[in-house]
Computed example of a mutant assay.
Amino acid sequence: MRVLLVEDEPEMAAALTVALKNYDMVVDHISTLADAEEAVFINDYGAILLDRQLPDGDGLTLIPKLRARGAGVPVIVLTARGELADRIAGLDTGADDYLGKPFAVEELLARLRAVLRRPADLPPETMRLGRLSFDLGNREASVAGQPLDLPRRELLVLEALLRRMGRTVTRSSLEEAVYSIDDEIQSNALDTHVSRLRRKLSEAEAEVEIHGIRGVGYLLKHSP
């Protein structure tokens, strides 16, 4: 899943980026409100972690703009402004959660899991196809109950394909799910990840197949 982190404190941003990547998420880090507004209208995010006190304004002003265009992406506000009135303002503006600084990274991850469970149009906590299962909460894949050990980016490819199982996923959509805006993407990098993932699924007898759609992308489906 791709997450937008809007945070202008370098040390905080670096720590959160590492924690989220360790949780197998793609992180786009933005430090200003203007850049955040541009990013959310260009990219598709699974969640937004939003600081309030940004160099060019209050991060809360981003939320009504998201909601006005029908974007239901979960937003967790992260801020040192933790007074009751501030929390109420954040939630009334449309934030899904409000977490005061300082906070434990473990609590942030737990709150992130919680807000991701709320929307009705998201996949269930565990996605299944053939003998393959993907636990979204624990970020783990398994085949017939046996863990499937996958590097971070192969896991991200698998998640993106499973979220649209039975439908073609374009190369651009897969790249957005796997790489952040700061990553340099080699021309054949995505194909390499897909090839390795395809081989591991076959070796594990997952009863799923990744089909390449020439010039478009990839499709994951059951192979009885």
Rank of each mutant, 00 (worst) to 15 (best):
R81T: 04
R131I: 02
G72M: 06
S202Q: 09
S202N: 12
H29L: 08
V3N: 03
V194A: 11
D56M: 09
E11Q: 09
A177E: 10
R167D: 09
I76H: 02
A110F: 12
D35M: 10
A13K: 03
E205T: 02
E175Q: 04
G217N: 10
Q146K: 04
M25D: 04
A80C: 03
I185F: 07
Q53W: 11
A110Y: 14
S195G: 09
V143P: 05
G90A: 10
H29Q: 11
D191Q: 05
E203I: 02
R67E: 04
G100I: 00
I185Y: 06
V169M: 09
R69H: 12
V26I: 02
R117K: 14
D97C: 04
R128M: 15
Q146L: 11
T192K: 13
G215T: 06
G94E: 00
E37I: 12
I213P: 10
A120N: 06
A80R: 00
A39C: 05
V27F: 12
E38T: 13
R196E: 09
V194R: 05
Y98R: 06
A68K: 03
E140Y: 05
E207S: 14
V105G: 13
A47N: 05
A160V: 01
S142I: 05
D44V: 12
V77D: 04
L16V: 05
R152V: 10
S31N: 13
L54A: 08
E159P: 02
L174M: 10
R214V: 02
D97E: 05
I181Q: 05
K221Q: 14
R167M: 15
L78D: 00
E11K: 11
I181G: 07
I88N: 02
E38P: 06
T168E: 14
V105T: 14
G72H: 06
F134K: 07
P151Q: 13
T192V: 15
A80H: 01
D35L: 13
E7C: 06
E9P: 02
N188L: 08
I76F: 06
R69W: 04
A114F: 12
